[in-house]
Design a protein around this nucleic acid. Structure first.
Lengths: 207, 207, 207, 207
DNA sequence: TATGAATGAGCCTTCATTCAT
DNA sequence: AATGAATGAAGGCTCATTCAT
């Protein structure tokens, strides 16, 4: 209980930083901007976070967590049919990007930062790995039960999905309206279908 | 013909800026860094480019051009079979990214910058549009000749391709080795296949 | 009451800036010069004043105020006889110029700057208007009581006075010693006298 | 004849510089601005004038000369009656200021510069002295012939006149419209009249 | 005689960081 | 736990000046 206020303030700062970073981008955001948004002084930021880097790192962490949860929820919600789950999480994956949640904007921006900032890489790598593994674990076994088999390594599927949608989101941000969104979802589904093949019923079925 | 030195110097500066931006990223690159890399004074940069913005814009222009040319070459080299052309330009598209050419690095970085810098958007949008149209124009008619039809709007294909590979490249940069490249190319091909369908010969409809 | 240090520091900066501007002139004064004179860092200046312009504006404000006060004091000190008041404030007006107070030097310099800097004009115009009105209000009624009338619009008197002395001060600065000061004060008085005429007592018009 | 071109170019540069300085003021004028106005390169300026200072000095010289000539012309034109001459040169002195000729603007601006630039002072001092002496020489003897005597040293008269009008011009520039110009000329004449006194016919007239 | 190119010092401003309170 | 004040390094940019051509 002793640290209650600290925790509350720190959370407040992270939330404010997320908003400001989403709005202005890393390169154009100063600590003063964040302090103002949080309704605190610059000094306070440094009280809670030793450096700008550490704050940004926390912001990224919280943004990734939030995105992961959202996607996972969509996956779980349609439990049972993994095909249906895949479909609904693709949709969610896309909507979360095209709406450009603060969290998504921050991640997109910091992903680029990470190219030149070693301290951010591990966090993103962790996220990608977690997402890949999460999906794979539930996807592959279910497919097998349905008589389907992946033509490619299982971990690749979520990576491809996320990569595809991230890349398209970038184009969407840069040139909104250029992407036909109806076509897009159809296409993604068609492409996903291309990744499976039907497993001929094994001959030892009766054994 | 005298005093044509400007062109040489400007090119030198753009080249140097490309290298430095690829190495350090936009946010961490100062004009002094570029000047040093170019072996010139800061003043010289401003003699040739009125502002940092204008220099960066030129760098982006030249990087996009270079990438477009490389990809186009791969496409053209395998002329004749558009399927083959698609395959070889996908490969090229991926290699150019995974090798992380200076040009690719710069474009990836500036694409993120563009989210918050309206002046960069048009250039990138132009590039995406040009690339999309370029591929579409040659791809679609050829497919028709081969009895294939796209299941999605034609412009979407190159956008999907580029988006997918850009997004995957990001993951590759952040977490090198995480992506199984052999599997990747197989997957892309499989997915691409999912985008076509065979057009039944028109005359035997009643059969 | 804590943290009231700002006021002290800001005042210190304005004082330092006044000294430096008086010594070097606007065009040759950098913020670094002022910071050094104030014994602070450049950053501190910007903490207290958002821009050079805003600092200079404050300096001008304070200089004008100080000059106005000095002249007003001289006027008031010799209250009663407005002629005497006029005389003593002319003397003060001149002495404040020939001594070249820091404040006077700053005002002279910034007046020239104002020709090309719209932001300074209103302040100076305000000062001129205030001074003119101040003098007029007390001068004209008193003259009437003494049977004197001005030959020109009342507001013109202080403007002429200030203009004359400003202009002469310029010559004095540029070529010190060229102006015979004894003669000057005599001349001003003689000229001032030329501005009045005696109002014939109203009742003996027929005599 | 050999230097014909040099002289022409130099004059062209001085003329251009006068225009630009009048328009933007010393502090805001760069050599590039002047070069552009003159239709030449920056290098050319330095070919003709070793430094900015030397160019500015020449500009001032030529501006002063031009003003002196104009005023002198007005004086001479009304030859015969020195009172009339005084009157017409006052008028000219004022009009040249209120119209704000390029030359007047430059002089006003550089006069302020001179306060901090020793190299400009002598030129302005020379101008003031020349003007004073010029007027005095013709004014005083004529007055004597008319039975008038100055109440103050003769050199003071032109200095007062110029000072007064310079000072008023400053106010006029800073706050146009604030000065009642009709009143002004009346006032100046009334004030000037205050400077003379009638010399009683000397008793030894018959001697 | 004049230009294009380049330099380098200096300017105003921004900003992460520190520290006394 | 948080603020106000101050620092100092760096950044983008301007400009008088130099010099080869």
């Amino acid at each position: 209980m002793a640290y209650a206020k600290t925790e509350r303030s720190a959370a407040q700062i992270v939330a404010a930083a997320t908003r400001v970073l989403a709005r202005q981008g890393y390169a154009r955001t100063s600590l003063l901007d964040i302090a103002r948004e949080a309704g605190m002084s610059k000094g306070a930021l440094h009280y809670h976070f030793p450096s700008k880097e550490s704050l940004v790192s926390r912001v990224l962490e919280s943004a990734l967590e939030s995105i992961a949860n959202r996607t996972l929820d969509a996956w779980i919600a349609s439990s049972g049919d993994p095909i249906q789950a895949l479909r609904s999480s693709v949709t969610e994956l896309w909507f979360v990007r095209r709406t450009r949640t603060d969290e998504v904007a921050v991640v997109a921006d910091l992903m680029a930062q990470a190219l030149y900032d070693e301290s951010l890489k591990p966090q993103l790598a962790g996220y990608f790995r977690f997402a890949a593994q999460q999906v794979t674990q539930t996807l592959v076994p279910h497919l097998a039960l349905m008589g389907l088999r992946l033509r490619v390594p299982g971990e690749l599927v979520p990576r491809i999905l996320v990569g595809l949608l991230d890349g398209l989101a970038m184009q969407h941000y840069v040139d909104p309206g250029a992407i036909d969104e109806n076509g897009l979802l159809v296409a993604v589904e068609a492409m996903a279908a291309g990744l499976f093949e039907i497993v001929p019923p094994a001959s030892d079925e009766k054994a």
